[in-house]
Design a protein around this nucleic acid. Structure first.
Lengths: 87, 87
DNA sequence: TTAATATTTAGATATTTGTCTAAATATATA
DNA sequence: TATATATTTAGACAAATATCTAAATATTAA
């Protein structure tokens, strides 16, 4: 959970997740969506990868990033503990 | 969402939320559950308050903290956007 | 093989964050 | 009123973080 919350605690990284929710993208395509440098985005992608929120797959000289939706369920489960008990 | 994720990005603060899920507690009672100093806990409580995750109510010389569960729904909704679309 | 393109790694730097102690504030009690 | 208790505020400091530029690595194309 620690790496997940760390990864989510940045607006750029949350935007990246939202982009990938639409479609898979290469690192370069993601960089184009922002004004910050390539290396910075690369670092953000690394943190998202560490948190298992995204998956990276190399295809030739490109690296395709996609959302790893299975982790979302874990997060949802974590938050459900705070939903007030029924009745 | 920014303040929420900031607040959640710390193990102590997440533990505080879990404690408050059990029952409301005074600042002092919360401090007792940890080895870190009172002022540090007070700071954590402030961040949780800023994120609307907890509510503080003064009663005499004590301050009672309780979970604000309404925000949980907002967070859950935010995460639902990443659930893969049906079909 | 050489040059171009895509991406990551390394290292530097300014900002943010978590923690502490000391002091301030507020309330209750003797 | 003076003292004790509960909590927060202020200020300092070390560690973590987001960003940058320059360099390294990998792949494709000429």
């Amino acid at each position: 959970m620690n790496t997940v919350f760390k990864a989510l605690n940045d607006p750029t990284r949350r935007e990246i997740l939202q982009l990938l929710q639409e479609r898979d993208m290469t690192a370069g395509e993601i960089v184009e969506q922002f004004t910050i440098s390539g290396p910075s985005i690369s670092h953000h992608l690394d943190l998202l990868k560490q948190a298992n929120l995204v998956i990276a797959e190399k295809e030739g000289q490109y690296v395709y990033y996609s959302l790893n939706t299975t982790v979302v369920d874990e997060i949802l489960k974590w938050f459900m503990q705070f939903k007030p008990k029924k009745k």
